[in-house]
Write a protein that binds this DNA or RNA. Structure first.
Lengths: 148, 148
DNA sequence: CCTTGACCTCAACTTAGCTTGAGGTTGCAC
DNA sequence: GTGCAACCTCAAGCTAAGTTGAGGTCAAGG
Protein backbone atom coordinates (compact mmCIF):
# COMPACT_ATOMS: atom_id res chain seq x y z
CA UNK A 1 0.00 0.00 0.00
CA UNK A 2 1.18 3.45 -1.03
CA UNK A 3 2.41 5.86 1.59
CA UNK A 4 0.20 8.48 -0.03
CA UNK A 5 -3.45 9.07 0.76
CA UNK A 6 -6.30 10.16 -1.48
CA UNK A 7 -8.52 12.96 -0.28
CA UNK A 8 -11.26 10.47 0.55
CA UNK A 9 -8.93 8.41 2.70
CA UNK A 10 -7.73 11.49 4.51
CA UNK A 11 -11.32 12.50 5.09
CA UNK A 12 -12.12 9.14 6.63
CA UNK A 13 -9.03 9.26 8.82
CA UNK A 14 -9.73 12.72 10.18
CA UNK A 15 -13.51 12.81 10.21
CA UNK A 16 -13.43 15.90 8.03
CA UNK A 17 -15.49 16.29 4.90
CA UNK A 18 -13.75 16.21 1.57
CA UNK A 19 -14.88 19.74 0.85
CA UNK A 20 -13.40 20.98 4.12
CA UNK A 21 -10.04 19.45 3.25
CA UNK A 22 -10.03 21.14 -0.13
CA UNK A 23 -10.96 24.36 1.60
CA UNK A 24 -8.10 23.97 4.07
CA UNK A 25 -5.72 23.40 1.21
CA UNK A 26 -6.90 26.61 -0.38
CA UNK A 27 -6.16 28.32 2.94
CA UNK A 28 -2.63 26.94 2.89
CA UNK A 29 -2.88 24.42 5.72
CA UNK A 30 -1.88 21.58 3.41
CA UNK A 31 -0.01 21.28 0.13
CA UNK A 32 -0.72 17.89 -1.38
CA UNK A 33 1.02 16.79 -4.56
CA UNK A 34 -0.93 15.92 -7.67
CA UNK A 35 -1.08 12.76 -9.73
CA UNK A 36 -0.74 12.82 -13.51
CA UNK A 37 -4.54 12.93 -13.59
CA UNK A 38 -4.65 15.99 -11.31
CA UNK A 39 -5.86 14.20 -8.20
CA UNK A 40 -4.52 15.16 -4.79
CA UNK A 41 -2.22 12.85 -2.88
CA UNK A 42 -1.48 13.53 0.81
CA UNK A 43 1.34 12.52 3.08
CA UNK A 44 0.56 10.48 6.16
CA UNK A 45 1.85 13.34 8.26
CA UNK A 46 -1.00 15.43 6.91
CA UNK A 47 -3.31 13.46 9.18
CA UNK A 48 -1.49 14.92 12.12
CA UNK A 49 -1.47 18.38 10.62
CA UNK A 50 -5.23 18.25 10.36
CA UNK A 51 -5.57 16.80 13.85
CA UNK A 52 -3.60 19.71 15.15
CA UNK A 53 -5.69 22.15 13.15
CA UNK A 54 -8.87 20.71 14.62
CA UNK A 55 -7.62 20.97 18.17
CA UNK A 56 -6.37 24.48 17.61
CA UNK A 57 -9.66 25.48 16.10
CA UNK A 58 -11.52 24.24 19.12
CA UNK A 59 -9.24 26.34 21.22
CA UNK A 60 -10.41 29.33 19.29
CA UNK A 61 -7.67 29.95 16.73
CA UNK A 62 -8.68 31.08 13.27
CA UNK A 63 -7.51 29.18 10.22
CA UNK A 64 -5.10 32.00 9.56
CA UNK A 65 -3.51 31.65 12.97
CA UNK A 66 -3.37 27.90 12.57
CA UNK A 67 -1.60 28.28 9.28
CA UNK A 68 0.94 30.50 11.01
CA UNK A 69 1.62 27.85 13.60
CA UNK A 70 1.81 25.03 11.11
CA UNK A 71 4.26 27.07 9.10
CA UNK A 72 6.73 26.66 11.97
CA UNK A 73 6.97 22.96 11.36
CA UNK A 74 10.09 21.84 9.51
CA UNK A 75 9.96 21.90 5.76
CA UNK A 76 11.14 18.81 3.99
CA UNK A 77 11.31 16.33 6.84
CA UNK A 78 8.40 14.88 8.74
CA UNK A 79 7.80 16.70 12.04
CA UNK A 80 9.13 14.96 15.10
CA UNK A 81 7.44 14.65 18.43
CA UNK A 82 9.48 17.61 19.64
CA UNK A 83 8.31 19.73 16.71
CA UNK A 84 4.72 19.08 17.66
CA UNK A 85 5.38 19.72 21.30
CA UNK A 86 6.81 23.14 20.63
CA UNK A 87 3.91 24.12 18.42
CA UNK A 88 1.47 22.82 21.01
CA UNK A 89 3.17 24.78 23.73
CA UNK A 90 2.67 27.94 21.75
CA UNK A 91 -1.05 27.46 21.58
CA UNK A 92 -1.11 26.51 25.21
CA UNK A 93 0.21 29.97 25.89
CA UNK A 94 -2.45 31.59 23.79
CA UNK A 95 -5.07 29.64 25.69
CA UNK A 96 -3.63 30.79 28.97
CA UNK A 97 -3.80 34.39 27.83
CA UNK A 98 -7.39 34.03 26.84
CA UNK A 99 -8.31 32.47 30.14
CA UNK A 100 -6.63 35.31 32.01
CA UNK A 101 -8.54 37.85 29.96
CA UNK A 102 -11.86 36.20 30.61
CA UNK A 103 -11.08 36.04 34.29
CA UNK A 104 -10.38 39.73 34.34
CA UNK A 105 -13.65 40.37 32.58
CA UNK A 106 -15.48 38.20 35.08
CA UNK A 107 -14.01 40.11 37.98
CA UNK A 108 -15.02 43.40 36.47
CA UNK A 109 -18.47 42.10 35.84
CA UNK A 110 -18.63 41.24 39.52
CA UNK A 111 -17.85 44.83 40.33
CA UNK A 112 -20.49 45.95 37.89
CA UNK A 113 -23.14 43.76 39.40
CA UNK A 114 -22.29 45.27 42.73
CA UNK A 115 -22.78 48.84 41.61
CA UNK A 116 -25.54 48.04 39.14
CA UNK A 117 -24.25 50.68 36.80
CA UNK A 118 -23.74 49.34 33.31
CA UNK A 119 -23.08 52.88 32.27
CA UNK A 120 -20.98 53.46 29.24
CA UNK A 121 -19.01 56.30 30.80
CA UNK A 122 -18.17 54.70 34.07
CA UNK A 123 -18.13 50.96 33.52
CA UNK A 124 -14.74 49.29 33.49
CA UNK A 125 -16.14 46.63 31.22
CA UNK A 126 -15.94 49.04 28.32
CA UNK A 127 -12.26 49.49 28.67
CA UNK A 128 -11.01 49.46 25.09
CA UNK A 129 -7.79 47.84 26.21
CA UNK A 130 -9.54 44.50 26.35
CA UNK A 131 -10.92 44.65 22.87
CA UNK A 132 -9.77 41.22 21.80
CA UNK A 133 -11.47 39.55 24.71
CA UNK A 134 -13.91 37.49 22.78
CA UNK A 135 -11.96 37.58 19.50
CA UNK A 136 -15.36 38.96 18.94
CA UNK A 137 -17.51 40.82 16.52
CA UNK A 138 -19.28 43.83 17.91
CA UNK A 139 -19.95 47.05 16.09
CA UNK A 140 -16.82 47.86 14.17
CA UNK A 141 -16.73 51.56 14.83
CA UNK A 142 -16.94 51.25 18.55
CA UNK A 143 -14.27 48.61 18.57
CA UNK A 144 -11.85 50.92 16.88
CA UNK A 145 -11.71 49.76 13.30
CA UNK A 146 -11.90 53.41 12.34
CA UNK A 147 -14.85 54.45 10.18
CA UNK A 148 -12.44 55.90 7.70
CA UNK B 1 -36.97 68.18 26.29
CA UNK B 2 -38.80 65.04 25.25
CA UNK B 3 -38.17 61.82 27.11
CA UNK B 4 -37.80 60.13 23.73
CA UNK B 5 -34.59 59.90 21.70
CA UNK B 6 -34.08 59.92 17.96
CA UNK B 7 -31.86 57.27 16.49
CA UNK B 8 -29.08 59.79 16.03
CA UNK B 9 -29.19 60.81 19.67
CA UNK B 10 -29.12 57.19 20.77
CA UNK B 11 -26.14 56.61 18.50
CA UNK B 12 -24.26 59.50 20.08
CA UNK B 13 -25.09 58.32 23.57
CA UNK B 14 -23.93 54.75 22.99
CA UNK B 15 -21.13 55.22 20.51
CA UNK B 16 -22.88 52.89 18.10
CA UNK B 17 -23.47 53.70 14.48
CA UNK B 18 -26.97 54.45 13.34
CA UNK B 19 -26.91 51.45 11.04
CA UNK B 20 -25.92 49.15 13.89
CA UNK B 21 -28.87 50.36 15.95
CA UNK B 22 -31.26 49.69 13.10
CA UNK B 23 -29.69 46.29 12.73
CA UNK B 24 -30.14 45.54 16.42
CA UNK B 25 -33.74 46.54 16.17
CA UNK B 26 -34.18 44.09 13.30
CA UNK B 27 -32.67 41.44 15.57
CA UNK B 28 -35.18 42.23 18.24
CA UNK B 29 -32.92 43.88 20.81
CA UNK B 30 -34.97 47.06 20.74
CA UNK B 31 -38.52 47.99 19.79
CA UNK B 32 -38.74 51.73 19.33
CA UNK B 33 -42.06 53.37 18.61
CA UNK B 34 -42.64 55.37 15.45
CA UNK B 35 -43.67 58.96 14.91
CA UNK B 36 -46.45 59.89 12.51
CA UNK B 37 -43.70 60.41 9.96
CA UNK B 38 -42.34 56.87 10.50
CA UNK B 39 -39.24 57.89 12.40
CA UNK B 40 -37.99 55.82 15.34
CA UNK B 41 -38.23 57.14 18.88
CA UNK B 42 -36.39 55.37 21.68
CA UNK B 43 -36.87 55.27 25.41
CA UNK B 44 -34.06 56.46 27.65
CA UNK B 45 -33.84 52.96 29.06
CA UNK B 46 -32.79 51.79 25.62
CA UNK B 47 -29.41 53.38 26.27
CA UNK B 48 -28.93 50.89 29.05
CA UNK B 49 -30.21 48.03 26.94
CA UNK B 50 -27.57 48.79 24.36
CA UNK B 51 -24.90 49.22 27.00
CA UNK B 52 -25.72 45.81 28.29
CA UNK B 53 -25.69 44.35 24.79
CA UNK B 54 -22.24 45.78 24.18
CA UNK B 55 -20.82 44.35 27.36
CA UNK B 56 -22.42 40.99 26.74
CA UNK B 57 -21.06 40.95 23.23
CA UNK B 58 -17.57 41.52 24.50
CA UNK B 59 -18.03 38.62 26.81
CA UNK B 60 -18.67 36.49 23.78
CA UNK B 61 -22.44 36.24 23.57
CA UNK B 62 -24.09 36.31 20.18
CA UNK B 63 -26.84 38.80 19.43
CA UNK B 64 -29.28 35.93 19.65
CA UNK B 65 -28.17 35.07 23.16
CA UNK B 66 -28.27 38.72 24.12
CA UNK B 67 -31.79 39.01 22.91
CA UNK B 68 -32.71 36.03 25.06
CA UNK B 69 -31.29 37.73 28.11
CA UNK B 70 -32.87 41.08 27.37
CA UNK B 71 -36.18 39.35 26.94
CA UNK B 72 -36.10 38.57 30.67
CA UNK B 73 -36.38 42.21 31.55
CA UNK B 74 -39.82 43.34 32.63
CA UNK B 75 -42.19 44.39 29.94
CA UNK B 76 -44.00 47.66 30.46
CA UNK B 77 -42.04 49.16 33.32
CA UNK B 78 -38.50 50.43 33.17
CA UNK B 79 -36.00 47.86 34.49
CA UNK B 80 -34.81 48.47 38.01
CA UNK B 81 -31.32 48.05 39.29
CA UNK B 82 -32.29 44.60 40.55
CA UNK B 83 -33.54 43.58 37.13
CA UNK B 84 -30.20 44.48 35.63
CA UNK B 85 -28.34 42.71 38.37
CA UNK B 86 -30.14 39.46 37.80
CA UNK B 87 -29.54 39.58 34.08
CA UNK B 88 -25.90 40.42 34.68
CA UNK B 89 -25.54 37.53 37.05
CA UNK B 90 -26.77 35.17 34.37
CA UNK B 91 -24.08 36.21 31.98
CA UNK B 92 -21.56 36.04 34.74
CA UNK B 93 -22.47 32.37 35.00
CA UNK B 94 -22.04 31.84 31.30
CA UNK B 95 -18.63 33.43 31.52
CA UNK B 96 -17.68 31.20 34.40
CA UNK B 97 -18.70 28.13 32.42
CA UNK B 98 -16.62 29.21 29.49
CA UNK B 99 -13.60 29.79 31.68
CA UNK B 100 -13.97 26.36 33.23
CA UNK B 101 -14.18 24.78 29.81
CA UNK B 102 -11.06 26.52 28.59
CA UNK B 103 -9.23 25.50 31.71
CA UNK B 104 -10.17 21.90 31.11
CA UNK B 105 -8.93 22.20 27.56
CA UNK B 106 -5.69 23.67 28.75
CA UNK B 107 -5.13 20.84 31.18
CA UNK B 108 -5.79 18.29 28.50
CA UNK B 109 -3.44 20.06 26.18
CA UNK B 110 -0.82 19.81 28.87
CA UNK B 111 -1.35 16.08 28.91
CA UNK B 112 -1.15 16.03 25.15
CA UNK B 113 2.10 17.91 25.10
CA UNK B 114 3.45 15.38 27.51
CA UNK B 115 2.59 12.41 25.35
CA UNK B 116 3.13 14.20 22.08
CA UNK B 117 0.26 12.30 20.55
CA UNK B 118 -2.25 14.59 18.90
CA UNK B 119 -3.89 11.48 17.58
CA UNK B 120 -7.53 11.65 16.74
CA UNK B 121 -8.35 8.28 18.28
CA UNK B 122 -6.57 8.71 21.54
CA UNK B 123 -6.43 12.40 22.25
CA UNK B 124 -8.73 13.65 24.95
CA UNK B 125 -8.84 17.02 23.24
CA UNK B 126 -11.20 15.60 20.66
CA UNK B 127 -13.77 14.66 23.20
CA UNK B 128 -17.05 15.61 21.56
CA UNK B 129 -18.49 16.47 24.92
CA UNK B 130 -16.63 19.75 24.80
CA UNK B 131 -17.94 20.81 21.45
CA UNK B 132 -19.00 24.26 22.46
CA UNK B 133 -15.57 25.14 23.80
CA UNK B 134 -14.77 27.97 21.46
CA UNK B 135 -18.40 28.74 20.58
CA UNK B 136 -16.45 28.13 17.48
CA UNK B 137 -16.70 27.26 13.87
CA UNK B 138 -14.93 24.12 12.80
CA UNK B 139 -16.14 21.72 10.17
CA UNK B 140 -19.82 21.28 10.68
CA UNK B 141 -20.01 17.54 10.18
CA UNK B 142 -17.35 16.83 12.71
CA UNK B 143 -18.97 19.11 15.21
CA UNK B 144 -22.16 17.19 15.01
CA UNK B 145 -24.46 19.33 12.88
CA UNK B 146 -25.45 16.12 11.15
CA UNK B 147 -24.77 15.89 7.42
CA UNK B 148 -28.39 15.01 6.96
C1' DC C 1 -41.94 78.22 1.27
C1' DC C 2 -37.73 76.07 0.87
C1' DT C 3 -33.51 74.16 1.98
C1' DT C 4 -30.79 70.99 4.53
C1' DG C 5 -29.61 67.51 7.56
C1' DA C 6 -31.45 63.70 9.71
C1' DC C 7 -34.25 60.13 8.83
C1' DC C 8 -36.51 56.13 6.07
C1' DT C 9 -36.26 51.36 3.26
C1' DC C 10 -34.14 48.00 0.63
C1' DA C 11 -30.54 45.65 -1.58
C1' DA C 12 -25.92 44.47 -2.04
C1' DC C 13 -21.28 43.89 -0.11
C1' DT C 14 -17.82 42.16 3.65
C1' DT C 15 -15.16 38.18 6.37
C1' DA C 16 -14.86 33.44 8.14
C1' DG C 17 -15.63 28.90 7.43
C1' DC C 18 -17.42 26.04 5.23
C1' DT C 19 -21.40 23.21 2.03
C1' DT C 20 -23.84 22.33 -2.17
C1' DG C 21 -24.43 21.82 -6.93
C1' DA C 22 -23.31 21.71 -11.82
C1' DG C 23 -20.66 19.84 -15.17
C1' DG C 24 -16.63 17.27 -16.28
C1' DT C 25 -12.46 13.69 -15.52
C1' DT C 26 -9.95 9.57 -13.49
C1' DG C 27 -9.05 5.20 -12.17
C1' DC C 28 -10.08 0.66 -10.90
C1' DA C 29 -12.99 -3.52 -11.33
C1' DC C 30 -15.27 -6.62 -14.04
C1' DG D 1 -13.78 -1.61 -22.77
C1' DT D 2 -17.16 -0.02 -20.03
C1' DG D 3 -19.36 1.34 -15.90
C1' DC D 4 -19.31 3.78 -11.76
C1' DA D 5 -17.47 5.70 -7.66
C1' DA D 6 -14.35 8.96 -6.49
C1' DC D 7 -12.11 12.69 -8.00
C1' DC D 8 -11.70 17.57 -10.27
C1' DT D 9 -13.00 22.93 -10.73
C1' DC D 10 -15.76 26.74 -10.20
C1' DA D 11 -19.64 29.35 -8.73
C1' DA D 12 -23.11 30.19 -5.60
C1' DG D 13 -25.20 29.82 -1.01
C1' DC D 14 -25.20 29.93 4.14
C1' DT D 15 -24.67 32.50 9.01
C1' DA D 16 -23.10 36.41 11.87
C1' DA D 17 -22.74 41.05 12.43
C1' DG D 18 -22.69 44.73 10.41
C1' DT D 19 -21.54 48.63 6.51
C1' DT D 20 -22.49 51.11 2.30
C1' DG D 21 -25.18 53.14 -1.17
C1' DA D 22 -29.23 54.44 -3.84
C1' DG D 23 -33.31 56.72 -3.87
C1' DG D 24 -36.74 58.92 -1.23
C1' DT D 25 -39.09 61.42 2.96
C1' DC D 26 -39.33 64.34 7.28
C1' DA D 27 -38.76 68.29 10.18
C1' DA D 28 -36.95 72.56 11.64
C1' DG D 29 -34.74 77.11 10.74
C1' DG D 30 -34.61 81.21 7.94
Amino acid sequence: MSPLLTIGELARRTGLSVSAIRFYEAKGLLSPIRTAGNQRRFLRSDIRRLSFALVAQRLGLTLGEIEEELARLPLGRAPTREDWQSVSRRIRDRLETRIALLERMRDRLDGCIGCGCLSLDRCALYNPEDRAAATGPGPRFLLGDAPL
